[in-house]
Amino acid sequence: MKRLIVYFHYDPLGQIDTACRVAVEAMAHYGEVFFISNGTLRPADRAWAASVTLTCRERENKGLDVGAYKEALAAIGRGRLARYDELVLMNFTLAGPVCSLASMFAAMEGRPELAFWGLTRHYAMKSRRFGGRSGEVPEHLQSHFLAVRAPLLHSEDFWQYWQRMPLPKSYEESIANHETRFTAHFANLGCRWDSYVDTQDLRDVFVNPIMACPRELLANRGCPFFKRRSFFTPYADELRRTDGTAAR
């Protein structure tokens, strides 16, 4: 399978830290990497990215991940993208891998019925912050790792989705208008999807398993990545959303 990986990066100081480098180098074994950063990279970091990726692109820090992906897709173009069987949209909020990625890619290549897939999923919930006007957050694949396959990848529906997507002005807008809508949008068009990490038995306890029980996913469910935010989640979040455990 010929795969293109668009890796979105952001660092206010223009640094590409060890976690990003490990992830990019690991992913580069499974596809060509288009590295796009919201901001200006330091010379040494730019040189590193250019040495290990197909393309290294810097842009104005505008539109968060949606802006970066829109610009990357426009730069790649439909003609060039037509050479690939799968596009992975991945971002710097993941750290790892903690194991070989071979099992994940082999397992998902063994599921040709899927039009798109992701690493993990978030279950449905009500949220005025992330649910937009309706306040409803549907079950969805999380945007830190999304893989889109041909023929969906080369369809007019996929390109129109990105062309019509307004640039978010905040983290909340990015979640409400893209991350929580992508899965349902294409599922409603008849596209089949699934996550690599199986957490169906956890859905009644955790809406966001990769954040609620990362050790379980890493140790027992084959998840190769974890969220950086596991190390700096605000205390208020854990007090508000206890995921069935003692807040302390």
Rank of each mutant, 00 (worst) to 15 (best):
L217N: 11
A147V: 13
R133H: 06
P151T: 04
Q200H: 15
D194C: 05
T199N: 04
I175T: 08
E216A: 10
E172N: 11
C191D: 02
A184M: 00
A212K: 06
I210H: 11
T183Q: 03
L141K: 07
V137C: 15
V137I: 12
P151A: 00
E139P: 08
S103G: 11
E172K: 03
L202N: 06
F145A: 14
V205Q: 12
N188M: 11
A187I: 01
G135P: 07
M108W: 10
Q142H: 13
V197I: 13
S127T: 01
H140T: 05
L152C: 03
S103L: 11
F116M: 09
R133T: 08
W193Y: 12
M125G: 05
C191P: 03
T199G: 02
H140W: 10
Q163G: 15
E113C: 08
V148S: 11
S127M: 01
Q163Y: 08
Q200K: 14
M125W: 12
S195W: 01
R192F: 01
Y161T: 03
T120L: 02
Q142M: 11
W162N: 09
N188P: 00
A150M: 07
M108N: 07
H122D: 12
H178A: 03
L119F: 06
T120D: 11
H178G: 00
F186V: 13
Q160L: 09
L202R: 11
A176V: 11
C99Q: 14
K169E: 10
P166L: 02
S100M: 09
A150N: 07
P166N: 00
E172I: 00
L189R: 01
C99V: 06
E136I: 05
P112I: 12
E109R: 12
A102R: 14
S134V: 04
V207L: 05
Q142N: 12
S195Y: 02
R215E: 13
A176Y: 13
S103T: 13
S100C: 09
A212E: 05
L114F: 14
E173P: 09
S100P: 04
D194M: 01
P214C: 00
P138S: 04
S143I: 01
S134A: 13
H122R: 14
E139W: 10
T199A: 11
G110Q: 10
Q142K: 00
N208W: 12
W117C: 15
L202M: 15
V207G: 00
R203K: 15
I210G: 00
E136K: 05
S103Y: 10
G131C: 06
R181Q: 04
Q200R: 15
G110L: 08
N208F: 15
Q160D: 07
C213S: 09
R203C: 05
F105S: 08
F145V: 09
F130L: 14
S195A: 15
G118V: 05
G135L: 04
A212G: 03
V197T: 13
N177L: 12
P209R: 03
F130Q: 07
R192K: 04
N177V: 00
V197F: 07
V205W: 03
Y196G: 00
T199H: 08
P214M: 03
A106D: 13
P138H: 10
R121D: 01
N188E: 14
P209G: 00
D204A: 13
A187W: 01
I175A: 04
